[in-house]
Amino acid sequence: MNGSIMEAVALSFLVLGAASLLIAAWGVLALPDALARQHAATKAGTLAASLVTLGAMAGMVDTDWWVRLVVILVLLFATLPVSSHMLARAALREQDPDEHIDEIPLAGGERSPNARKG
């Protein structure tokens, strides 16, 4: 009884992960420019990968599996944002090599309210 509930949880996580992976690929095809596609691949991709890993965790309740799955999850969380950032910067420089930083609008005011008082 208990096992079948876990299996149902695992199945739903795996199906959700597959769906968000498909939507990420759809976004990479449908969104208009390189920087917008970055959003699709990073965010939807991270969500998809973590859902698949969680599904596998629910499907195989076993230390050997959990250790490896946690390592995969941590690696993906740590590396996907960094590689996306590097790629976004490369895409921006490829599109428009002369950056005019001062012409880009500044959002949220000159100083952050969280700055530690010196």
Partner: peptide, 14 residues
């Protein structure tokens, strides 16, 4: 943030 941003990006893509 991971969960919320994933869902919102999915919504924007759709």
């Amino acid at each position: 943030a991971v969960v919320i941003s994933g869902l919102q990006t999915i919504r924007i893509i759709v």
